[in-house]
Design a protein around this nucleic acid. Structure first.
Length: 284
DNA sequence: AGCGGGACCTGTGGGC
DNA sequence: TGCCCACAGGTCCCGC
């Protein structure tokens, strides 16, 4: 499900509901949803949500201590990290709402006025993870440590230096160590906009093409963020709203249909195990 | 190094 | 209506 624009949208919509609130209790409903390296989620008790943000496809709640936690012996988590994977959803349910069939964890938070609010983590396919971490723990997490740069924050030369080797450019874009946050949708969409075939060898993309590709990546991601992401089936933001960028797809999910640029039939292949759609005429 | 395949899960949609 | 198969926005691991 969520790639960079979707996680960004969830972070933005969730933040107003949680910032300033203090974790009071937690109810894990599926043990495997808690990352094996995570601190016990119970350690969240007394920590206040200071900010919400996104890194790659991860959503982070930055935490700060309160008087409740000041005397604690254990190291309290300084961040609560969520990886939504394919079907993870974070939202604040209505006060009387019951847990759903796919609710994997419930967090109880206390608002400054003393009233309680809850945070649900729902995840149909159960691939998602919750990780209560300290900075040291995050650094021990290989996936985190190896994350590549944010696509919206790098320049073309930085991208060029990371695109090496003989593997397909699309495979490289999906590799979170190369560049973080791009998934199957935005890899296909950006390559179409840059008029680059997904099958080209990453190391063969020249400087000019690299600049064009990065420009296409940034524009695609920013346009999607502006439209609150893409909703194919599961994705919803923290308010339960769908995104709109799926209406702007040039290639994703359009195999066999006509290229919007040249009218020829879009090809659908499998590349690195992922459905890949592109125009064999427009993309070289 | 890089590829394909499978695994992890549940649900949905198409074909028959 | 129902069954079976293919497939789904992510990542990891294995063997070649």
């Amino acid at each position: 499900m969520p790639e960079l624009p979707e996680v960004e949208t969830v972070a933005r919509t969730l933040t107003p509901y949680v910032v300033g609130n203090v974790f009071a209790w937690v109810k894990p409903l599926l043990a495997s949803t808690v990352h094996p390296m995570s601190l016990p989620l119970e350690n969240l008790a007394g920590m206040r949500v200071q900010a919400g943000r996104r890194r790659a496809k991860l959503l982070l709640l930055d935490l700060e201590p309160t008087s409740e936690t000041a005397a604690r012996q254990d190291a309290p988590p300084t961040a609560l990290v969520f990886h939504l994977r394919m079907t993870g959803r974070l939202f604040t349910p209505a006060a009387n709402a019951a847990e759903g069939k796919h609710t994997r964890c419930v967090f109880g938070l206390r608002k400054p006025d003393g009233s309680e609010t809850r945070l649900f983590f729902d995840d149909t396919r159960t691939f998602g993870k919750i990780f209560a971490a300290t900075p040291a723990l995050l650094e021990q997490w290989t996936f985190w440590r190896n994350l590549g740069p944010e696509p919206l924050e790098i320049d073309a030369s930085a991208l060029a230096s990371r695109l090496t080797g003989t593997r397909a450019i699309k495979t490289a874009l999906l590799d979170q160590k190369v560049i973080a946050g791009i998934g199957n949708i935005y890899a296909d969409e950006a390559l179409f906009r840059a008029r680059i075939s997904p099958l080209r060898k990453a190391g063969d993309i020249n400087g000019k093409e690299c600049a064009k590709l990065l420009d296409a990546i940034k524009k695609t991601l920013l346009q999607s963020i502006a439209q609150c992401g893409s909703s194919i089936r599961d994705y919803r933001d923290a308010d339960g709203n769908v995104g709109a960028f799926q209406n702007s797809f040039a290639v994703y999910g359009r195999g066999g249909e006509k290229c919007r640029k040249c009218g020829r039939e879009l090809q659908k292949i499998r590349l690195g195990g992922r459905a890949t759609v592109f125009c064999g005429h427009c993309q070289k």
